[in-house]
Nucleic acid binder design. Structure first.
Lengths: 190, 190
DNA sequence: GAGCTCTTATATCGTGGCGATATATCGCAG
DNA sequence: CTGCGATATATCGCCACGATATAAGAGCTC
C-alpha cells in the first residue's frame, strides 16, 4: 500500500508505458507530448519514480544495453522499462479511482489523456467532479470581482476578468465532453 | 545580493505591502485575491519568506501585540510587517526588471497585478516578452498536433485542441493589453 | 453563560518534485 | 574532422507545498 509518491506521476508513467516498453528519455517525451502544456516532468522526478516503481514490482527493467559499457553513470545505455503483471493491475486500480483528487488541476489532465483506457462510468464521474470544481472557482472569482470592484486598479481587474473568461470557457468545454460521455454511457447500457 | 528565494514570491510580498502594513494572515489573503487563480501561497512559504525579508532589512516588524501574551508559538499575536526604506528600494529594483523570467507563467501574473506600480516602458517589454513566449508555445502545440494526428486518440486530441484554443485566446488578450500599453507609452512621451 | 463552531492567526516539519549540473555518445553539417 | 545539438542516465540542493499543531476571538444557540 502506502502510495508513496504523487499518484499522478505514478499514473502518468504507468499509463504511458501501457503501450509498450520505453526508456526514460523517450518516456518523458511521450508523457510531455500528452500533457506538456499543463504539467511538467523533470528527470529529477522521473528517474527516482522509475526506481521506486521498479522496486515496488510494477515495472521491470529490460536492460537491452546495446553498448555494454556500463561504468558508473554511463550514458547511451538505454534502459527500457515495461509493465509487469502487477503493474498492469496497479494501473487499472488507479484508472478506476474517481475521488476529489481526480479533479484537481494537476491530476485532471493526466486522467483525461488516459480516458481511452478508462471505464466509461469513471469518465463521467471525473468530468462531473471537475465541472463542479470549476463552477465553484467561477463563483469565487465573481464574488471577488463584485466585492472589490472599486478598490482594484484596472490591471488587476483585467487579470481577474481574463481568468473568469478562461474558466467559463473550460466549463463550456467540459459540458460538451460530459454530453458525449453520457451518450456513450447510455449506448453501452443498451 | 544573492536573491535567495524565488524573486516572484519576494515581489508579491513587497508589492502587496506597498499600500501599508499588514500581518501575515491578511497579507496572504490580499495576495491570493490578486493572483489566486494562477498561483497559490501557503504559510509554509510565506512565514519563512517574511522572516528572511526582515533579516535582509527589507521589512520591519511593527509588533503591535494587542494581547501581550507571547508564549512560544502564540496565536492572535498579530505581527504586522511594513516596508523599510531599503524594502521600497528593493521593490522598485524588482519592478524595473524585465528579463525572460518575467514572462514565465509563475511570474507573469504577479507582474501584471503590480502593473500600476510599474514603469510604462517596462510594462510594454514584459507584455511583448510574454507574447513571444506564448506564440512559441502555440507553434509547438500546432506542430505536435500536425505530427501525431493519427496516432492520438480522440481524448488526447481534444485535450490538445482545448489547450491550443486557450493559448490562442491569451495571445489575443495580450495583443489588446499591448495596444493599450503602447498608446499609453506614446502619450507619456508627448 | 455554557458550550459550540468558524474564522483568525502564527508557526514548524517532512518531503516531493524542480532546476541545475555532470557526463558521455551518436549523428550530422560545414 | 571538428564541433555542435540531440540523445541518454543520474544525482544533488533546496524551495515551496501541504499537513499539522495550537489557541484565542467572534458569534450563535439554548
Amino acid at each position: 500500500m502506502a502510495t508513496r509518491k504523487s499518484q499522478t506521476l505514478e499514473l502518468a508513467i504507468l499509463g504511458t508505458l501501457k503501450e509498450g516498453e520505453l526508456h526514460g528519455y523517450e518516456l518523458r517525451k511521450r508523457t510531455l507530448a500528452l500533457i506538456g502544456q499543463v504539467r511538467s516532468l523533470s528527470y529529477g522526478s522521473l528517474y527516482p519514480a522509475l526506481r521506486d516503481l521498479t522496486q515496488s514490482g510494477y515495472l521491470q527493467v529490460d536492460e537491452s544495453a546495446a553498448h555494454g559499457v556500463r561504468r558508473g553513470a554511463n550514458p547511451r545505455a538505454r534502459i527500457s522499462y515495461s509493465l509487469t503483471a502487477a503493474g498492469k493491475e496497479r494501473l487499472n486500480e488507479l484508472l478506476a479511482e474517481a475521488g476529489p483528487k481526480e479533479w484537481d488541476d494537476e491530476s485532471f489532465a493526466v486522467r483525461l489523456a488516459l480516458f481511452s483506457q478508462t471505464d466509461v462510468r469513471v469518465r463521467v464521474r471525473i468530468l462531473e467532479g471537475r465541472h463542479t470544481k470549476l463552477v465553484e472557482r467561477l463563483e469565487a472569482i465573481r464574488e471577488s470581482l463584485s466585492r472589490g470592484m472599486e478598490r482594484m486598479d484596472s490591471w488587476t481587474l483585467e487579470l481577474q476578468r481574463h481568468g473568469e473568461e478562461a474558466v467559463e470557457r473550460e466549463v463550456r468545454w467540459l459540458n460538451e465532453l460530459i454530453d458525449n460521455a453520457r451518450s456513450e454511457e447510455k449506448e453501452m447500457n443498451k
